Simulated assay, not measured.
Amino acid sequence: MLRIMLLSLVLLVSACGKSPDSMVGSGDASREKLEQRAEERWRARIAHDWGKAWEYESPAFREVFPKQLYVKKFSYTANWELTGLEVIEYDPEAAVASVVVRVMSRPTKQTSAAARAIGAMQRELHEKWILVDGEWWFSAGQ
């Protein structure tokens, strides 16, 4: 009986010593998943597939902001080209991360001389992502 209690205690202590990272997968795998999801979200935005982009919003956001309203809030005034994506802050224990997304942005309609003269512009966007139930989600509340 004492052996069973000691074994149970050892198992309990070892389980408590695990980092949250190890509970949701290895840190590297979780970071790779974050990068993948951030890129997938931007691929949807580049394609102007707002319904697909909505699917990367946090569960709390999606509860209060239905897909059909989200889709209607966007216009088609810009086209983007993804030129880079980098995770700059990553803390799975705190369940947060920061991602820098670099895109080339162009107006869809080059109707003015200014729009034609400016052409494509490099933009650097800072995004916050949160870890919920083992999955990374874009956090609109930055």
Results as ranks from 00 to 15, higher is better:
55 E>Y: 01
5 M>Q: 13
116 R>M: 09
36 Q>T: 14
93 E>L: 09
105 S>Q: 14
116 R>A: 12
120 A>G: 08
3 R>H: 09
107 P>V: 10
102 R>G: 04
56 Y>R: 05
78 A>T: 13
87 V>N: 05
95 A>N: 12
22 S>M: 12
97 A>W: 05
131 L>A: 07
49 D>E: 01
22 S>Q: 15
72 K>V: 06
36 Q>E: 15
102 R>I: 01
109 K>W: 03
83 T>F: 01
16 C>W: 14
127 E>Y: 10
56 Y>L: 04
139 S>P: 00
16 C>V: 09
122 Q>T: 12
14 S>V: 15
18 K>R: 15
107 P>I: 01
10 V>N: 06
90 Y>Q: 00
101 V>W: 00
94 A>F: 04
128 K>Q: 14
15 A>L: 14
6 L>E: 12
29 A>C: 00
137 W>E: 04
4 I>F: 12
75 S>V: 01
95 A>C: 08
126 H>N: 11
136 W>Q: 06
45 R>K: 10
98 S>R: 15
107 P>M: 07
7 L>N: 13
44 A>D: 07
44 A>E: 05
116 R>W: 04
113 A>Q: 09
17 G>N: 09
75 S>F: 03
12 L>S: 15
2 L>V: 13
45 R>F: 15
61 F>I: 02
131 L>Y: 07
44 A>C: 06
124 E>Q: 12
53 A>S: 12
129 W>A: 01
114 A>K: 10
38 A>W: 02
40 E>Y: 05
34 L>M: 06
124 E>W: 01
119 G>E: 02
28 D>H: 08
140 A>E: 15
52 K>R: 15
92 P>T: 02
142 Q>S: 10
48 H>K: 11
49 D>A: 07
97 A>S: 13
61 F>H: 13
2 L>T: 10
130 I>V: 15
118 I>D: 06
69 L>I: 08
74 F>L: 01
